[in-house]
């Protein structure tokens, strides 16, 4: 069986992270598994976990009143689930529901953000890995807003 550290160190998010930080991060990590349909977190809940998807698919959903939930994004293999654990007020903005059996590593978000506060080099490392993802997500959201495929009328 692979160790958590060996799994984490090949995950795209952590590739080439210094080994002392890798060890530190592994210290607050645990293996988890979500069944299809299981909620990983709910909108408004405190964001205290940082979920690294190994395999599977998670839907980020909003549920408008009197309507069925709408999926606005899915994340899957090799991707990460959200950044609310690092950004005040540390609350989730969306529901996250496993669409299929999903295996992930969960990092203790609270522990991680404390470590980032203590060691700004680590903080910078994580932020510079998160920021491109935030940027891409925002770009994707903007393209989604354009409603590309609708007939213009």
């Amino acid at each position: 069986m692979k160790t958590l550290e060996s799994i984490l160190s090949v995950h795209p998010f952590f590739v080439n992270l210094e080994s002392k930080y890798m060890a530190l991060i592994t210290g607050c990590a645990s293996n988890v598994r979500f069944e299809a349909g299981e909620f990983i977190h709910r909108q408004g809940e405190e964001a205290n976990s940082f979920c690294i998807i190994r395999q599977g698919k998670v839907a980020l959903q909003v549920c408008p009143p009197h309507k069925n939930p709408v999926t606005v994004q899915t994340v899957s293999d090799g991707e990460i689930l959200g950044w609310a654990w690092l950004v005040p007020p540390y609350h989730w903005q969306f529901d996250a529901q496993a669409v299929e059996l999903t295996r992930a590593i969960v990092l203790d978000g609270k522990c991680l953000r404390n470590k980032c506060n203590e060691d700004h080099t680590l903080g910078y490392e994580l932020l510079s890995r998160l920021l491109p993802i935030v940027g891409q997500t925002m770009e994707a959201t903007r393209i989604q807003l354009l409603d590309l495929y609708g007939a213009r009328s």
Partner: peptide, 9 residues
Amino acid sequence: DSNWRGNVG
């Protein structure tokens, strides 16, 4: 909607 099992994005 939540019936969709595929990717959204």
